[in-house]
Design a protein around this nucleic acid. Structure first.
Lengths: 342, 342
DNA sequence: ATTAGCACTCGACACGAAAGAGTGCTAACA
DNA sequence: TGTTAGCACTCTTTCGTGTCGAGTGCTAAT
């Protein structure tokens, strides 16, 4: 069966109405729509067709219809395609530029949660292929050495190293020079065993320090494997009755609190890159069990080279996709901007 | 009226039973207690007395009794006094030592939430009177200078400074020496205007760098004004029916998510220092509106000199105070230990 | 002082009736 | 042939009712 114009209109009306009310919509409600002048009976016939096509569902006999996951999918796909053509004006956002990326991200996610009334999340950028920019070893006291590691995105990591024997200032100075001349500009994959052996040779008896420092470097860069995830507005889910019964809510919120599972979501959102950089998961499309009653919209923002961080909005299936996609889109460009400037 | 021995026993039995079951306890239940051989009728009479004294409450006629806030308070006060005398053996806890304080705190709060089944929070230590231990300026590229600031607790802060003019390696070396010799060991209050002027004089034309660096120092130390608060186990509140209706739960969880309000709690817990370092807020005693149906137990842990951070457990009024106080106590000593060692 | 007993209250629960919303189907209509 | 009116049917929701059980307060007996 084909989706003719009238069916499409009815389908749209159903979705829109349901997005607003959150309750199954019946044939009479739709029949009151102005632009299609049909009786409820006709609508009923059409609805039966739509249900047969799998676009809408009847939660139980003699209830109205609600969109199925497939229905949402159709709607969203259409929406995205429409947006593609439009030029969107920037939505105003109060992101004051801040040195601390952490604070910035926290603020972003909060603003977003506030303005959309959904739960939101954002990840710090991943610096996978990042190169080393600078290393500095400093003696803190007799036994402790501080290694400061700066990567290409001007991200600074510290690592405190403790040694049993006293540290020699001269030596550290030499090591500093050695490390910086040989490592600067290299990505982590480029620091191979050959290079490490060479370094140790040059360091002589103090090769232990070298190996400890290299461990620290590896750790500092890999640390970004488990990306920081910031969330906000988790309690917004209480605003949607279909999610707020205590079992579901508890599961959702703890997913939010744990954050570990969210990482899988981000993973998959980075893999399946779409042209807009925005992706929508409806119900079971998301790889998280607790979210089967939700929809998730994600966007990836970029910093310098390559894919970087992810923003996500989690809400009920009946979320206002149009608004959410808009918000994410404009936020994405803003973030792209901010990070490029830096 | 006085709390004679029998009344006390009955009162205790009521509390204990209620803590377990979470449901109003009736006279018959208590009458089954072994060590006091009384009929339910007698208990009823005593309960009427206890109610008159404001220690217990009847949620509605012909329901059992539950402890009132005042009742909890009495019980807790007694408990604390008892604990005071006891020597507590350490509870085993898997805190592997970690450089990253942040990770440590996150882990602590998680372990605590898991083992107690309540919502938990912990603040990073405040370094109010912390002294400077080490400063390192490094040139990152033509225009950027990295200032690394280490304070007494081996807390490392980074600050990236951007300058318009090119930076001179020799100069930075000199400044490093100058800053370290003159600032090391000083607390923030000791860096007064006189000292700053002297520094600038010695730096000559490059006094701009000095002042920028000092700003960074001030910022790095003051940053701890708005203390980080880590929370965990917020969803544990769903385990207690009396808190888990969606309105209350929503309020509570959002308090947790926001964290701002929690700061007031910490504030007050730091002010009202008790001899054990552990404080209990019952219902309205806590300065947070959303927590009027909860109890909060806080402990402060110390690092070096003076009050430092706060751990808190938030649960229903019928929380297992005994266990909680024990947990907090042993955790507190462990944290004290860890931070002192460092 | 304690207890047994009794009437009373109140919440929890189950059941059924009624209301309301919405459907599917059929027959009539344009 | 597409549309509509009408009707019987289904299912949820809501409300009232009745019953049960837990628990109390009071009184009288021990």
């Amino acid at each position: 069966m084909q989706l003719d114009d009238r069916k499409w209109k009815i389908f749209n009306a159903i979705i829109k109405t349901y997005l607003e009310t959150g309750e199954p919509v019946g044939s009479r409600t739709i029949s009151k729509y102005e632009d299609l002048n049909l009786s409820s009976a006709t609508i009923r016939n059409e609805m039966a067709d739509l249900e047969e096509m799998g676009l809408i569902i009847q939660p139980h006999t003699s209830a109205g219809r609600i969109p199925s996951d497939k229905g949402y999918r159709l709607y969203v796909d259409y929406l995205m395609q429409e947006k593609e053509q439009e030029v969107r004006e920037q939505q105003e956002l109060l992101i004051q530029k801040q040195d601390k990326m952490e604070a910035l991200l926290k603020q972003v996610v909060k603003v977003l949660a506030n303005s959309t009334n959904y739960a939101t999340m954002i990840t710090s950028p991943r610096y996978n292929a990042t190169k080393l920019k600078f290393i500095q070893l400093s003696i803190i006291d007799e036994e402790q050495l501080l290694a400061v590691i700066v990567t290409e995105g001007n991200i600074v990591k510290n690592k405190m190293l403790r040694f049993r024997h006293d540290l020699d200032g001269e030596l550290i100075l030499k090591l500093n020079i050695l490390l910086n001349t040989s490592l600067t500009g290299l990505a982590i994959e480029q620091i191979d065993l050959g290079l490490i052996t060479r370094l140790k040779e040059q360091a002589g008896i103090h090769s232990e320090v070298i190996s400890r420092v290299l461990d620290a470097v590896a750790e500092a860069i890999q640390m970004d494997e488990d990306v920081e995830i910031y969330t906000s507005g988790a309690t917004n889910i209480f605003k949607y009755p279909e999610l707020s019964d205590s079992e579901r809510a508890s599961g959702l919120i703890s997913t939010f609190e744990e954050k570990k599972e969210l990482a899988t979501l981000i993973q998959s959102s980075m893999e399946g890159e779409s042209s807009t950089g925005i992706q929508v998961y409806i119900g079971n499309e998301a790889p998280i069990r607790t979210m089967q009653d939700c929809s998730v919209v994600t966007a990836t923002y970029e910093l310098g080279e390559g894919v970087q961080g992810t923003i996500g909005i989690i809400g009920p299936k009946r979320m206002d996709y149009e608004k959410v996609v808009d918000s994410l889109k404009s936020l994405k460009t803003q973030l792209d901007l901010i990070f490029q400037k830096d």
